[in-house]
Design a protein around this nucleic acid. Structure first.
Length: 819
DNA sequence: ACCTCCCGCCATAGG
DNA sequence: CCTATGGCGGGAGGT
């Protein structure tokens, strides 16, 4: 292991030579410029500390002295290094003196751990590059230089760069060389991540996890629901999400398929973007990221490692000012968590190519699209080689063409460059959607334990209340006004997304196409795409899941896709040729599966619908093709079915909810599945389904496009809920004595409703309805701190978000500082 | 005593 | 084989 720490003598210097040299060698000058902290000072300390076991730091010294560590060794070490070191260092010929000098003189100089934190390092790194670099210039980053200048080991730089890369703030050019993009792509990236996060039902996963925890706390007894219940997680194995323009540059040298840190980073960000109170606890994040259907025995070590990584990532994200640390209080005590303080992301702005010409440069676009697709298809695992599947390409093309047609229309999205967005959050909180999702989530629960029910119901109620009719659209953002984005057209119809079965992917609204990727472990992959619908067939036994999305417009494609799928079910990857006939087979097969599948069982007992769902769709991953075809998707999207499904709001994001919402049992079993059986290829949501879930409908309606205020009042919701029998009349108000009326379950998730309000951008305030007022702090508008979280020690609260309302009751979240 | 998370060993990918 | 990357987890600083 590392003997270095304990044994300064022998090994150490070996080690020392290694790193120290690199670091020491670095030029201080640059450093000083960048960081005022202590350029020169810094260096020396480093040297000191370099000696592994025996730091020259005051404390270390003390220890050393006490322990009577051999000084000669240290000196030796220093000698070795110093020669290489900076000139100033050389000056001090007497190493011993020097060492003393530093240790004594600059107490502060000693790089306390904090000073060496990745966050700080990242900050230094960021200082070197502008947020919005002139694209004309070449903003290359040489890792060597950076590490030297920042005086850190390379390894650390990789950590930073990897995260930045995950946000597409940099992209790799070649070995040792990266290009700095700054925040030009940030919004677009975040949008994409959000979308993907939604598609992955991260929100639901989070809730699932929380619920589980909760359950565990209370009763261990309830493991009942069948084994199925618990652990299956939706978790999917995502691969690195790329942006449309970025892949090119990076592509050439794309190394490791793996990119775990990158992927983790993206997932982590997704969690924020998807969760309603944009607060994510490390614990939850780790679980989700670990993702597998681990059977509750979270590998301790694995978990710990994940946490470590998350801290690393969090530090970088913090430096980017995208998140900040907070603590969420729970029964157990506080838990470390992070809150998103970055820009709000719109659901889906049509990603118009930021590239110079708007014109559909066919060739270019297509190419990019393809590229993208293929890239996305690569599972991180790498084993399955899916690489450019012909069908995919085809699909892409088709989509493209469709899109073109559609886009040509006047309504086509204006080119709003997402790139610029960074500074101001143009986004709108799509509260409605989220609320709806939450409500639904909550609703499904009821059948379960009473306890939970209670809690949940309470929450639900609250949430419902909270749900403001706000129409996200209010947003002043020019772009929005101009271009409603794809969704808009669709948005015309009242939304029914609720009706969508869980199987359906949320993304429909987004109008994004996807490639479906099954986790290798699950079985085979398949690919399909369709903005519209996704059908998932799963054999529970195998846990094999398939998602198929159907696109009315691109049937042909679908068929092809299906064809492949047909085999995939049984089989393995293969590049099957396509037969249209196969699709049918597939269908049948899927039907058969369904019949046997647990779903049926679930019908009987309404419990755990969610679980069932989860089970059904273990780990399927959809890769959005949207980027590829920036515009295209919409076209597809517009089929009637979609329209029906999608929420109407143009700018709004409401529709996104749909996917997120867990469907109630009855709904799923009764309505959705049947539908699937019938026509996989052309699935349409039966209108009736809507009726089935009144609550959901209510929610969705709220989202109605133009009128924020229209949404049903909370009372209405409650009413509805009550009628449904999901909640008892009294439930709505505080279930939780401690928290008070609004009180929510301590867990973060519960908090969410509130925070939502807080999160709302000012612009939208007008939209905010009375419900919000409810939450408002008596004091009046103030900074918005999420309920759950208290602001940083600095007390700085979100400036960035600028929410005006403070939640009345706070969940107890304390700032880290406090704690 | 737990929370953070730095450090750097060492396996891999890439060349 | 050598270098660039980066997974990983020990264990130490912080609170």
């Amino acid at each position: 292991l590392n003997n270095q720490s304990e044994n300064p003598s022998s090994e150490p210097h070996k080690l020392m030579l290694k790193t120290p040299l690199k670091q020491a060698a670095t030029s201080n000058s640059v450093l000083s410029e960048i960081q005022n902290q202590a350029g020169s000072l810094l260096t020396p300390p480093k040297l000191n500390e370099t000696s592994p076991g025996d730091p020259w730091t005051p404390t270390a010294n003390l220890k050393i002295l006490i322990s009577a560590a051999s000084p000669e060794i240290r000196n030796r070490e220093q000698k070795k290094r110093w020669p290489d070191g900076p000139s100033e260092v050389l000056e001090a010929k007497n190493y011993l003196h020097v060492s003393f000098y530093f240790s004594l003189t600059n107490c502060k100089s000693q790089p306390s751990r904090k000073e060496k934190s990745l966050g700080l390092l990242c900050h230094k790194f960021l200082v070197r590059y502008p947020n919005f670099p002139n694209t004309a210039e070449n903003n290359e980053i040489c890792l060597d230089e950076v590490s030297e200048e920042l005086n850190v080991e390379r390894r650390r730089i990789y950590d930073i760069v990897n995260v930045l890369e995950s946000l597409h703030m940099v992209s790799r050019l070649a070995k040792n060389r990266y290009v700095w993009h700054g925040r030009h792509n940030l919004n677009k990236t975040l949008q994409t991540l959000k979308k993907v996060g939604e598609e992955n039902k991260y929100k639901q996963q989070i809730q699932l996890i929380k619920r589980r925890e909760y359950e565990q706390e209370f009763e261990l007894e309830d493991e009942k629901t069948g084994m199925v219940t618990t652990h299956t997680s939706l978790n999917t194995d995502l691969c690195f999400v790329e942006l449309p323009g970025m892949e090119f540059r990076a592509a050439s040298v794309n190394s490791r398929k793996d990119k775990s840190l990158r992927v983790m980073s993206q997932k982590f960000v997704m969690l924020f973007l998807v969760s309603t109170p944009q607060i994510v606890s490390l614990e939850v994040a780790a679980k989700i990221l670990i993702g597998e259907d681990h059977v509750e025995d979270l590998d301790k070590s694995k978990f710990k490692t994940k946490i470590r990584r998350l801290y690393d990532i969090a530090n970088v994200l913090s430096s980017l000012e995208l998140i900040k640390k907070v603590h969420v209080k729970e029964e157990r005590g506080r838990k470390p968590a992070f809150k998103w303080i970055g820009p709000h992301i719109l659901p889906y702005t049509n990603p118009v190519p930021t590239t110079t010409t708007i014109v559909p440069s066919h060739s270019v676009e297509c190419k990019s699209a393809k590229e993208q697709c293929s890239k996305n298809l690569f599972p991180s695992r790498g084993k399955q080689s899916f690489t450019r599947h012909p069908s995919l390409m085809k699909l892409v093309k088709t989509i493209e063409s469709d899109r073109r047609k559609i886009h040509s229309a006047p309504s086509s999205p204006t080119k709003k460059s997402t790139t610029d967005s960074d500074p101001n959050p143009s986004s709108f909180p799509s509260k409605m959607a989220q609320l709806a999702a939450i409500c639904k989530e909550q609703l499904e629960e009821p059948s379960r334990q009473l306890k939970k029910m209670k809690m949940k119901l309470t929450q639900t109620t609250m949430q419902c209340k909270l749900a403001s009719p706000v129409k996200s659209q209010a947003e002043p953002v020019p772009s929005s006004s101009q271009t409603p984005s794809l969704v808009e057209p669709l948005g015309v119809l009242p939304v029914i997304h609720n009706s969508m079965s869980p199987a359906m992917l949320p993304h429909a609204y987004s109008g994004v196409s996807y490639a479906v990727y099954l986790h290798p472990s699950q079985g085979q992959t398949m690919t399909t795409y369709s903005p519209t619908f996704t059908l998932q067939c799963v054999s529970c036994a195998n846990m094999t899941g398939i998602k198929t999305s159907l696109d009315a417009n691109s049937k042909a494609l679908l068929n092809d896709a299906v064809t492949e799928d047909g085999n995939f079910l049984i089989a393995k990857e293969k590049e099957v040729t396509k037969n249209d006939n196969i699709s049918e087979k597939c269908l049948k097969r899927s039907q058969a599966l369904l019949e046997n599948s647990p779903i049926k069982k679930y019908k009987g007992n309404e419990k755990n619908l969610e679980d069932a769902l989860v089970t059904l769709f273990p780990s399927v991953y959809l890769i959005p093709l949207a980027h590829c075809t920036q515009l295209g998707n919409e076209a597809v999207f517009y089929s009637k079915e979609k329209a029906a499904m999608c929420s109407s709001e143009p700018g709004t994001y409401s529709s996104s909810i749909a996917g997120l919402l867990p469907v109630t049992t009855s709904e799923v079993t009764a309505v959705n599945f049947p539908a699937f059986h019938i026509t996989p290829l052309k699935l349409m949501v039966p209108p009736s389904s809507v009726a089935t879930v009144p609550v959901a409908n209510g929610v969705s309606f709220n989202s109605s496009p133009d009128n924020p205020s229209q949404s049903p009042s909370s009372s209405l919701r409650n009413f509805t809920l009550q009628h449904l029998g999901l909640i008892s009349p009294g439930m709505q108000v505080s279930a939780n004595p401690i928290l008070g009326p609004a009180s929510v379950h301590p867990e973060t998730e519960h908090v969410s409703p509130i925070s939502e309000n807080s999160t709302v951008p000012e612009t939208s305030e007008m939209c905010q309805t009375t419900t919000e007022n409810f939450f408002r702090t008596p004091g009046g508008p103030t900074k918005n701190s999420s309920l759950a979280v208290s602001s940083d020690s600095k007390g700085v609260d979100e400036i960035s978000q600028g929410t005006k309302f403070v939640p009345q009751r706070k969940l107890e979240v304390s700032t880290e500082a406090k704690l």
